[in-house]
Design a protein around this nucleic acid. Structure first.
Lengths: 203, 203
DNA sequence: CATCGGTCGATACAGTGTATCGACCAGTAC
DNA sequence: GTACTGGTCGATACACTGTATCGACCGATG
């Protein structure tokens, strides 16, 4: 599992094959089936291992939920393959449950029936936001490693598309509105959600 | 592309191979490369085609955003493979842009600089919520097609895990709190988010 | 009718996850 | 010390993947 994470960190998720993992461990491929039942199980183990790095901290439900979100995002920045896996299968491994336990424990002052929807909503937002962010980051990297070539490559396409006049409102926003960086976008969306939660649970 | 969607609807995303698509079309595999550059491009086309079914409607920003969310979720229910692809790559195809245009156009009464973060936040929530929901649905289906066997298979594992006493808060919530169905969970999270947005943009 | 140019797709390649089953070896009985 | 037996392990094989290559073919041109 550690070997698989090593491979995924270095060359992405598609670089993880049972043969390569076995090679890293200096073992024959079929040996791995003594420990895992399938490749999917290996991926599940990788995700659970990543959850070990997600330790929400803070006082009060809002701080803890914000911490959970930031920690998850941070983990996905260190292990971009997490963005591909998060939310793809139910997470019931020990480390994932431990994260959940820490969060739920910190929500002691919240109505019991409200806890699950609140945590589910924050998790959903984080999963989606991280996926979008990593996807964009990869697309930028694919078009030449720096932002200049990215704009040079995307710009013309969008220019042409907007020039057709089929997306006037979109064109206006893209051209006129200030563009926030990834950090701000993530935090603003998270604030929307936490504000909404606060309004409802204190009702 | 339509052939690929047919295959994915029937047997899931991993059933989509260029050979099978070519067979459906009664064509030799390499012929496909006259229309697409790679399999990834085919997947992008599938996602954009799915966006054609996502047409937000309604009056006012809140109704339109809710409609966008529900329509996306509905599309993912009809095409479960969407859950695997959504958010995985930037969506710049014509139908995806058309969805964006419809949404942005309906947000005319919102401050220009607020539009992008708001739409991004709603999209992020929807992507994550849909992924989680579909993942759970698949897990249920994998353990015997009906809810009874699902609980019979998951229950013992969770019982055993909670019996260790390592996750007391989690155990309490899972045992004592009312369990919402997928529809309610989705809508409650969406309401949190829209409430939070409303509070900020009318400030 | 001959030649040329360009297109098309059969073949090949380097991989993938995993089922199968023969080889091997520790432990036992004599 | 030797013969046998049971069970484990992993080499081999299979069915499949996405896609590069390049020879064959065919329509158009001289």
């Amino acid at each position: 599992m550690r070997a698989a994470i090593q491979l995924a960190d270095a060359d992405g998720l598609e670089a993880v094959s049972l043969r390569k993992v076995a090679t890293v461990l200096d073992v024959r491929p079929m040996r791995l089936y003594g420990y895992i039942a399938s490749k999917e199980e290996l991926l599940d183990l990788m995700v659970d291992a990543a959850h070990a790095e997600i330790r929400p901290v803070g006082d009060g439900w809002r701080e803890v939920l914000r911490s959970l979100a930031e920690a998850t995002r941070h983990a996905a920045h260190e292990h971009e393959w997490l963005a591909d896996l998060l939310g793809g299968r139910p997470q019931l491994g020990p480390h994932a449950l431990a994260s959940g336990e820490a969060v739920v424990a910190a929500l002691g002052d919240v109505d019991v029936d409200a806890i699950m929807p609140v945590v589910a909503a924050v998790n959903a937002y984080v999963i989606g936001a991280v996926r979008r962010e990593i996807a964009e980051r990869r697309a930028e990297r694919a078009t030449g490693m720096d932002e200049k070539r990215w704009q040079a490559s995307l710009g013309p396409y969008l220019e042409r598309t907007f020039a057709t006049g089929r997306f006037p409102a979109l064109a206006t926003v893209v051209r006129d509105a200030v563009h926030l960086d990834a950090d701000h976008t993530f935090r603003i969306g998270l604030d929307f959600l936490l504000d909404g939660i606060e309004a409802r649970i204190s009702r």
